[in-house]
Simulated assay, not measured.
Amino acid sequence: MSIINTTDATFDQDVLQSDKPVLVDFWAAWCGPCRAIAPILDELDTEYADKFQIVKVNVDDNPQTSARFGIRSIPTLFVFKNGEKVETVVGGRPKSEFVELLNKHL
């Protein structure tokens, strides 16, 4: 698998109907911390390809989804399992914390 850039139109299909856990990254191109964690998410996508789906939502391009989930600051990351939001992380984190987060929800 590879990282999916989802939209307001495809979010439910890409995230809520996924058959595996999903890490959703709400981000924007102008956000420094968002750009800082992007390479970490790329690594995690490779390492967890068969266990987790990583999905990115550009908040500038997809205001409906951002509003629906009450995104106030970015990066905000959610873990979804079986269509339910089970965890929230706000702000940049080191890779080790993301590894812990993913392992917790496998």
Rank of each mutant, 00 (worst) to 15 (best):
S2H: 10
I3W: 07
N5F: 06
N5G: 10
T6Q: 00
T7H: 00
T7K: 00
D8G: 09
T10F: 04
F11Q: 07
D12F: 07
Q13I: 11
Q13W: 05
D14S: 02
D14Q: 01
D14C: 02
V15I: 01
V15F: 00
V15Y: 01
Q17W: 05
Q17T: 15
Q17E: 14
S18C: 12
K20Y: 00
P21E: 08
V22H: 02
V22D: 01
V22T: 00
L23D: 12
L23V: 07
L23A: 07
L23G: 05
V24I: 05
D25M: 04
F26A: 08
F26Y: 13
F26R: 09
W27C: 01
A28L: 12
A28V: 07
A29Y: 02
W30H: 03
W30P: 12
C31P: 08
G32R: 08
P33Q: 11
P33K: 13
P33N: 11
C34M: 10
C34R: 04
R35H: 05
R35M: 13
A36E: 11
I37P: 02
I37W: 01
I37N: 07
I37S: 05
A38Q: 09
A38Y: 06
P39T: 05
P39W: 03
I40V: 10
L41I: 06
D42S: 14
D42M: 11
E43N: 13
E43K: 14
E43F: 04
D45G: 15
T46D: 15
T46A: 13
T46S: 13
E47T: 08
Y48K: 10
A49H: 11
K51V: 05
K51H: 07
F52V: 14
Q53E: 14
I54M: 03
I54Q: 06
I54R: 06
V55N: 00
V55R: 01
V57K: 04
V57S: 00
N58H: 09
V59C: 10
V59Y: 10
D60I: 10
D60W: 11
D61R: 11
N62D: 02
T65L: 09
T65W: 04
T65G: 05
S66H: 05
A67V: 05
A67E: 15
R68S: 14
I71S: 13
I71A: 11
I71M: 12
S73N: 11
P75Y: 08
P75N: 13
P75A: 08
L77Y: 00
L77F: 04
L77A: 07
F78W: 04
F78R: 01
F78K: 02
V79R: 02
V79A: 00
F80P: 03
F80D: 00
F80N: 02
K81R: 15
K85H: 09
E87Q: 10
T88N: 06
T88F: 07
V89W: 03
V90T: 15
V90R: 05
V90S: 13
V90I: 15
G91R: 10
G91Y: 01
G92F: 09
G92I: 10
R93V: 08
R93A: 13
K95W: 07
S96W: 09
E97N: 12
F98P: 03
V99P: 03
V99D: 09
V99A: 06
V99I: 15
V99F: 07
L102E: 04
K104Y: 12
H105W: 04
L106H: 09
